[in-house]
């Protein structure tokens, strides 16, 4: 800033401070303008879709499509008369159970596979095979085994979460910096100490990634379970309404599911940034 000491300052034929200030102000203006444009675009696309939906809905058969206002009204109505709120709670409960139990098992299995080469040799192949199998294929078999009850919903959701979690944690454990392990060894860390101080912390970002995938897969599992068991929750509410051709309500439930998905995903994104600050900064 202070160009007193700069021997070349006399030879600069213009005022650097002034030129700089102008340039910076100009850049800020451009950025602000771009930001404003994007907000306009976002807003207008929302209005365009809402209006388009409304107009198309008004001109189509009620069985096929509904105007947005009717979707909102019918869904609102369903909340009070048909226990939609309860269905949401049941779904969240199933989802929560699957996520917690599935992640716990997944973290445990992933750690075991990553830490013990012999366990990997023993069970690794089967776990990778199951990870590669679309879980949907197992659903009919599981319902044969445990019936169409709540247990089936819990079990299916859990299974959807377990495998992505296992594989993520496994990768995390396998990617531990060898140099850091050696530091632990050099300072006489016991096996358990090196897991606690080195392996587990370096697997944290992978665990969060696994959790992210677990959330996505858990939602899929939950809806598949609810749709196939027809027992309770949003999934079965969805099929019930669809079977009765209440298209407006079906659309409303889909919007609710969409909202849930976006919410979970946002939470996971925030968690990913929060949980490993040393990752974010590098």
């Amino acid at each position: 800033m202070n160009n007193q000491n700069n021997p070349n300052s006399d030879s600069v034929p213009f005022d650097i401070e002034k030129v700089g200030a102008e340039l910076i102000a100009k850049r800020k203006m451009v950025q602000k303008k771009q930001k404003r444009t994007r907000i306009y675009l976002r807003g207008s696309s929302l209005v365009f879709i809402a209006v388009g939906w409304q107009i198309y809905g008004l001109h189509s058969m009620a069985i096929l499509f509904s105007p947005l206002t009717k979707v909102f009204y019918d869904t609102y109505e369903l909340f009070f008369t048909r226990q939609l709120g309860e269905a949401i709670l049941v779904s969240l409960q199933t989802f929560g159970f699957g996520l917690v139990v599935g992640s716990t098992i997944g973290i445990f299995l992933g750690m075991m596979l990553g830490l013990f080469k012999n366990f990997d040799a023993l069970a690794g192949v089967y776990i990778f095979a199951l990870y590669s199998t679309p879980m949907v294929a197992l659903v009919p078999l599981l319902t044969i085994w445990v019936g169409f009850g709540t247990a089936a919903q819990y079990l299916i959701t859990t299974l959807f979460v377990v495998f992505p979690m296992t594989i993520s944690v496994y990768n995390g454990v396998k990617h531990v910096d060898k140099g850091l392990l050696e530091v632990g060894q050099s300072f006489s860390a016991t096996r358990v100490q090196s897991w606690r101080h080195i392996v587990l912390p370096s697997a944290v970002p992978f665990i969060v990634t696994g959790l992210s995938q677990g959330v996505a897969m858990g939602m899929v599992g939950m809806f598949i379970a609810e749709i196939s068991t027809q027992l309770s929750g949003l999934g079965s509410a969805l099929t019930a309404q669809a079977n009765a051709y209440h298209t407006a309500r079906v659309l409303g439930i889909i919007l609710i599911i969409m909202f849930m998905g976006v919410t979970f995903r946002t939470i996971m994104r925030m968690l990913e940034r929060k949980v490993a600050p040393w990752f974010a900064q590098s």
Binding site: L180, E182, S186, S188, H197, P201, W278
Partner: peptide, 30 residues
């Protein structure tokens, strides 16, 4: 490895998830 010897590593090998004081106290924590 023994506790009467200590090594300084070429690639520093600090724990990125530990603060500086925790990195330094690591051998003593163990």
């Amino acid at each position: 490895p023994r506790r009467d010897m200590a090594m300084v590593f070429q690639q520093f090998d600090l724990f990125p998830w530990k603060t500086i004081d925790k990195n330094i106290s690591f051998p003593l924590d163990l």
